[in-house]
Amino acid sequence: MNKFNNANVLLEVKDLRTYFKTDNGILKAVDGVSFTVHEGETVGLVGESGCGKSVTNLSIMRLVPSPPGKIVGGEVIYKGTDIMTLSEKELRNIRGNKISMIFQDPMTSLNPYLRISTQMIETIRLHQDVTKQEARAKAIRMLQLVGIPSAESRIDCYPHQFSGGMRQRVMIAMALSCNADLLIADEPTTALDVTIQAQILELIKKISQEMGTAVILITHDLGVVAGMCDKVCVMYAGRVVESANTDDLYENPMHPYTKGLIASVPKMDGSREERLFSIEGQPPNVIDLPPCCPFHPRCNRTCEVCTHAYPPVKKTGDDHYVACWLHCSEEEREEALKAARKGEN
């Protein structure tokens, strides 16, 4: 039985849609994404670049730059309240306090003109009623926790005096300094060296377990997901195509895209002569996509309905959902095809 049940749902994203207005048309970066995060759970969001992972998470925090971006629909329910309907002030109380984020590029995510101490202390004092000294002490504790050596003196440095990995540690310390319930980590290791990557991931895992923080981990690295996440959502062209518990997904992938992704991870036990699998082609541009499964040109099991309608989400197992016509019944396909043809005429 799953240790996460409906009672301790922390965040529920329902049919989230975020569109961007561009010169060439409307870019549907996120087009109906739904998933849930339970307390203390680590959820992985996986997909190729440009599939809408980051925008999904910016939308959760309502941080999508507008214009050109706009959240056009959906709900993000955090502990029973819909974030989308909150006032600016209530929203600020959630940002950084209940839900915090760390970003992809630690080089640019810290303000280069302010000392680390300033940036950390202001965060703590923003959400907690403490004095400057207390906030500073807490900041130093957090820095020690994330493994910054001689934190007492380093706290007064400027960001450019830290290395990339160290900066990401500072970001994590800052993000968790208010004991957030949910940490959104947007590709936290992409800009770092491989050795540092492992350290940072280990750190996130350790701290989230210690503090009981739920984590949404955005990555394109299935290996990372396998090591860290309880649950995985696979995204393609702005939608979740498959979601399942990590072990379930790896053992029993349902969507051809997921299968392709898993097959393309190099295996240590595979023979060297064997060619590494790769999914042919490129992901589509999400501007003006016709109503169809966006993956069908790259799919090796396309049928007629794939080119005419988007598949519905089907539950195929315990907490395992997939959006693919292959897992629909014959009647459903026929019906969809008919409806689509009618629409076209």
């Binding site: 925090m61 600020r92 640019t108 995510s109 303000n111």
Partner: peptide
């Protein structure tokens, strides 16, 4: 205002005025 560190500041829940004048 479009830069990453301003996004960080917003994600931390800071007020717009503080973001503009301090950050």
């Amino acid at each position: 205002l479009r830069s990453d560190y301003i996004r960080t500041a917003r994600a931390k829940g800071m007020k717009n005025s503080t973001i503009i004048f301090k950050h």
